[in-house]
Computed example of a mutant assay.
Amino acid sequence: EEVKGAGVFGSFESSVGSFGSQKITLNWHSITDRMFDFLELGAHRLDCRGALQEHDRSSGRLITRALRIVVQGHTTSGELGKLEKNATTDSSTEMEITYIKIELDGKNILELDKLNYIYRVNGKDQLADTRRALGL
């Protein structure tokens, strides 16, 4: 948000402690039973994992790091796509994210839970004072 007004010598942009809409889109090559699971009402949770390779300049070796991203949210739209001979259906599902957690090598580097006033960066609780002030 832009901050300006009395007592401020100019305007500047600042975090006000809230986040805008965040969405994730799942693209499907074909229509499957799993795709329709996301059309059920309620929250859906995805646990995505990857292996990241980084080049260590000091040793010249590749280092593999474990990445884990957990997202939870509600489906906002689902597209069945198209049905053509020898082609993918290009179906998709879009979810509004209300929770996201990112771990790198088992270390919690980001956790955002919009519904429970949780925001942690590098393991540091950024909203502890806010929850205390609200009696949560």
Rank of each mutant, 00 (worst) to 15 (best):
G106D: 09
D33Q: 10
A6M: 01
A51Y: 02
E54Q: 03
E2P: 07
N116K: 15
G10A: 11
Q126M: 14
T98D: 03
L41Q: 12
V71S: 01
E2T: 10
K114M: 13
G81S: 05
D125P: 01
Q72D: 04
H74C: 14
V70Q: 11
R131F: 01
E103A: 08
R68E: 12
H44Y: 09
E1D: 11
K101F: 07
F19Q: 01
S14V: 14
A51S: 10
E96H: 13
L112W: 01
E13I: 15
S30E: 02
F19H: 07
T75W: 05
S91P: 00
R131A: 03
A51I: 11
S77Q: 12
Q126Y: 00
S92C: 14
R45G: 04
E54I: 10
S14T: 15
L52T: 07
G123C: 12
T32C: 05
Q72N: 14
L39F: 09
T76D: 12
G42Q: 11
T75A: 13
I100E: 10
M95L: 15
G20C: 09
D47I: 15
R49T: 13
L46W: 06
G78T: 10
N116M: 14
A51W: 00
F12Q: 04
N108K: 14
D56G: 08
E40C: 14
G17Q: 02
A128E: 09
E79P: 01
R120I: 02
K124S: 07
T32V: 09
H74I: 15
V71M: 10
I63A: 08
T75V: 15
L52G: 02
E13V: 14
D90K: 10
I118K: 04
L26S: 01
T76L: 14
S59K: 08
L127Y: 06
L80S: 07
T130R: 09
G20D: 11
E84Q: 10
R65D: 00
S18T: 03
N116F: 07
T93N: 05
W28M: 08
L104S: 02
R132Q: 08
S14C: 02
S77T: 12
H55T: 02
L134I: 12
G20M: 06
V16E: 00
F36T: 06
F9K: 10
K82M: 10
K124F: 03
D129Y: 03
R132Y: 06
G7S: 02
N108D: 13
S11N: 09
Q53E: 09
R68T: 09
G10Y: 10
L62T: 05
G42S: 15
L26R: 00
R57K: 08
Q126G: 08
D129T: 11
C48G: 06
T76C: 13
T98V: 14
S15I: 10
G135Y: 04
G17T: 05
G50T: 06
G10L: 11
W28T: 03
G78Q: 09
L83P: 01
L41N: 08
